[in-house]
Simulated scan of single mutants.
Amino acid sequence: MDPFESELRVIEAAEELAATLGGDKNHTVAAAAMDTNGVIHRAVNVYHFTGGPCAEFVVIGLAATAGAGPLVTMAAAGDGGRGFMPPCGRCRQAMLDIHPDIMVAVPTDNGSQMRPVRKMLPDTYFFPEADSRRLLRFSKTYYDAVANGTKVTTVRFDDPVVPGPYIFIFEDDAEHRRLDGMVTKVQHYRLDQMTAEQACLTPGECVDEFRGGLRARYPELSDQDEVGVVEFELI
């Protein structure tokens, strides 16, 4: 997916730091990561024959030192004008375990794109002992409805939401507002068989129009696919 303005700032921060490198062969890659408060943390790699850490590893540690909590966005860039680059396999695994809901910037033929880290490691091993705090993303237009309790459900496709505590974040929100919440229930239904009641629609809402809205949001969604109805509350 195309990056939001806030995600573009993370890419720019990585590229700006990378542009200052080049005089020291031990530090050749820069990384930037944004936390849920909108703070961008930056760091560089440490190249060494014993296996020095990548820039993504260093910035994860730097953010933890600052008490940043879950990270929302990650980008890395190389020195010498190499531009931003995707993370290596080890960094992908670490991000999946420690920050499982992070979005990662990758270069494509169509320009900068954002990928959920779990999509970058299909059929991966997951390290449950990491006990990471989860994030649940919403459009920034839903902030008031979530904050005042009028919106207590959301429908997701191909998104592994499970019951438990979450930080609710609102995409590309200039104020970087966040709420602490709890996912209380997740139920799955086949799209073409889901009723208005199962979708938790309000009286008068048309389930066919609702299905059409989901297809527009998730172009890869078919009638035979299952979607998850997520119930949540603030804590």
Rank of each mutant, 00 (worst) to 15 (best):
M1T: 05
P3N: 10
F4M: 11
E5H: 10
E5L: 11
R9C: 07
R9G: 01
V10Q: 00
V10A: 02
A13L: 06
A13F: 02
A13V: 03
E15G: 11
T20F: 00
G22R: 04
K25A: 14
A31L: 03
A31Y: 08
A33G: 14
M34F: 03
D35Q: 03
D35H: 09
G38S: 11
G38I: 01
V39T: 15
V39D: 09
H41P: 01
A43S: 12
V44L: 01
V46D: 06
F49C: 04
G52K: 06
C54I: 00
E56D: 13
V58G: 00
V59N: 02
I60M: 12
A63E: 04
T65D: 13
G67I: 01
G69N: 02
P70N: 02
T73H: 13
T73C: 14
D79Y: 01
G80Q: 08
F84G: 02
P87K: 06
R90W: 10
A94K: 06
A94Y: 05
A94D: 07
L96S: 01
H99G: 05
D109G: 08
N110Y: 09
Q113R: 15
Q113W: 00
V117P: 00
M120W: 05
M120I: 07
P122M: 00
P122I: 03
T124D: 07
T124V: 10
Y125S: 14
P128M: 04
P128F: 07
P128K: 10
P128R: 06
D131L: 11
S132F: 06
S132G: 12
R133L: 10
L136N: 09
F138A: 09
F138E: 04
T141K: 14
Y142A: 14
Y143Q: 08
D144W: 00
A145Q: 15
G149A: 12
G149R: 12
T150H: 05
K151N: 11
K151I: 07
K151A: 09
V152N: 12
V152G: 12
T153C: 13
T153P: 00
R156H: 04
D159S: 10
P160R: 12
V161Y: 02
I169W: 05
E171W: 00
E175Y: 06
R177P: 08
L179F: 11
L179S: 12
L179G: 05
D180L: 13
G181R: 07
T184C: 09
K185E: 15
K185F: 04
K185T: 08
H188G: 04
R190P: 10
R190E: 14
D192M: 08
M194Y: 05
M194K: 09
E197W: 05
Q198S: 08
Q198D: 12
A199E: 04
A199N: 10
C200I: 01
L201T: 11
L201Y: 10
V207G: 11
V207L: 07
D208I: 13
R211S: 07
G213V: 09
L214P: 09
P219L: 06
D223A: 14
D225Y: 07
V230E: 10
E231R: 12
L234T: 13
